[in-house]
Structures are given as C-alpha cells and as structure tokens.
Amino acid sequence: MDLKNKTILITGGTSGIGLEAAKQFLALGNKVIITGRNLLKLEEVKKAYPELTIIQSDAANPQDAIALFEKVEHIGGIDILYNNAGVGAAPLNLGISSDKHLQGAIYEMEVNYFGVIRLNNLFMDMLKSRNEAAIINTTSILSIVPSVLEATYSATKAALSFYTKSLRSHLEFINSPVKVFELLPPLVDTDMVAERKDKKMSSSLFVKELIKGLEKDTLTIRVGDSKSLFFLNRIAPDKAYQLVNKKEHYQSIQ
C-alpha cells in the first residue's frame, strides 16, 4: 500500500501509539486527523504538531461517532481509518461479587468492539469511493492468548479479531478496494501499561513495524512478541497460556 498523500484518521491519537503513528504518517507526507476525548490534550498536541487536524470525539459515544463522520466528510474525507482507540479496565477479582465487573466489561466492549464496528459502518461508503483505502483494526497479543487479569479486554480483542477477518472476507468477495488490516501489538510502552514491569516495545519501533506491514500489504500484522506467541500457541497452547499468565499474576488477584 502506498502511504504517501493519503488522509488518515486515527482514533485515540493524543498519546502513546496513536500519537506516534500520527507523527510517522505525517513524516511520510500524509494528512492526519486525530481524535480524543480530552479537548485540552488535543489542543496541546495541536500546538506541538500544527499540521495535525484534531477532532474531539469519544469512541464509546454513538452521537460523537456521527458528528465525527460529518466533520471528516466536510473536510474532504479519508483514505485510511485507523481504529486505535482502546480501553482496559483495572484488574478485577472476578471471584468476588461486584457490579464493577459488569460496568467495566460493558464499557470495554463499547469502546474496543462496538465502537470500531460503528465507525467502520459510518465510513465504509466513503472508503469504497477511494482508489486505494484501508481500515486498520487494532487487536492485541491477548487476542491470541487471554490474560486472567484482563478477561474482558482479552475477549473484546478476540471478538474484534474474528470480526476483522470476516469483514476482510466480505469486502474481498464483493471486490471492494478497501483493504482490512489487523494489527496485533505486543506490550508497548504507553501510559496505559506504565506500571507494568514486563518487557515493553517502544511505540516508535512498533509504529515502524506497522508501516512496514502496511507497505507490504501484510493484512495480519503481528509485531514482536505477538508473532512468537502466535506460533507457540499453535504448537504448545498450554505453554503459551502459562507464559501470559504467570504465577504472580494469579497472586495479585487473591
């Protein structure tokens, strides 16, 4: 895929992977639009990178999604929709009765799964009208093997992975020009996992790998540990599960 002179919309672009992707896409000569819930953060990013277009939008809010589409349509549309926004609830002890389990699960599913489908539906006809277009859905290493500390997060990403494969097949069947990429990050060094002591990949290196995959039309882009865990899970699923869910993980929820 040619990654020059494209207009790219990145959800959740005020920090971490989203912001790094915005910077690297800009450097390649693209126009980049980022979204975020926090207007102050968006404005701070805009000051640092004036070339960016910012739009306040909450991935969990259906009305925000419609407003986002209308604003993007007004400024000329997009070629690439990068569904980067995602949330993970704090680790919860599922063995103790609590309404917070359900509340957190509903919110994670709303952002990580339903929010992606909602935007894809809104932007699909626009993307189909382009000569070369793409959707990038961000799943996770935990869509391969679930984490006991992030049960619903893992489930949302597994659901998104199945949806992404199905969407790709449907679009290929109707000869659509829209390419559908699945991006499987390992543990990336962002604010979301700042307290984790596990090995992390830098967001800069991660985005470079993303761009390589897009340019090569690698529709399933596994990066770093996601690649090795995928193969380990195929030949030794028990070992893969133990690797993701170490004993100390269980101890932390007792």
Rank of each mutant, 00 (worst) to 15 (best):
I66C: 11
N38G: 08
M126R: 00
L81S: 08
I75R: 08
I54A: 05
D64F: 08
A105D: 01
I34A: 03
R118K: 09
G77N: 01
D125Y: 09
G95C: 06
K128C: 11
N112Q: 06
D99S: 15
G36V: 05
L122M: 12
S57Y: 04
K47D: 13
L102G: 03
N84M: 06
Y107R: 05
S97V: 14
K100P: 10
Q103K: 08
V87M: 04
H101N: 04
I33Q: 02
G95E: 03
V32G: 00
P62S: 10
A48P: 15
T35N: 06
K47C: 13
V72H: 00
P91G: 03
L122E: 09
D64K: 06
A60H: 02
G115R: 02
I78V: 02
I33V: 07
A65P: 12
I135W: 01
G86L: 06
E51S: 11
E51M: 07
P50N: 13
D64R: 07
N30I: 00
Y113P: 00
L81E: 09
E51V: 06
S97R: 15
E44T: 13
D79Q: 03
L39A: 07
S129W: 07
M109E: 01
Q56V: 00
E132W: 06
S98V: 01
L42T: 04
T138F: 00
G115A: 04
M126G: 12
V87Y: 04
H74T: 15
K128E: 09
Q56E: 09
S57M: 13
A90H: 10
N121Q: 08
P91L: 09
L94T: 08
E73A: 13
N121M: 04
P50Q: 10
L40S: 14
Y107M: 11
A90P: 13
A48F: 15
Y113W: 00
N84R: 02
L52N: 08
P62L: 01
Y107K: 07
K41D: 09
R118E: 05
K100M: 14
Q103G: 07
G88D: 11
S97H: 15
Y113C: 06
E44G: 11
L92D: 12
A133M: 03
I66T: 14
L52C: 11
K31L: 02
M124W: 09
A89V: 13
N83A: 08
I34P: 06
H74L: 15
D58E: 04
V32L: 07
A89Y: 10
N61Q: 10
K31G: 07
V111P: 07
S129A: 02
G76N: 05
N38W: 05
P50E: 11
A89C: 14
D58M: 03
N93C: 04
K128R: 12
M126F: 05
H101E: 02
N84A: 01
I135Q: 03
V116H: 01
V87E: 08
V111M: 02
A60D: 08
Y107S: 12
K41T: 08
N61I: 06
M109L: 07
E44A: 14
V45R: 02
A67M: 15
L68D: 06
N137A: 05
L39Q: 04
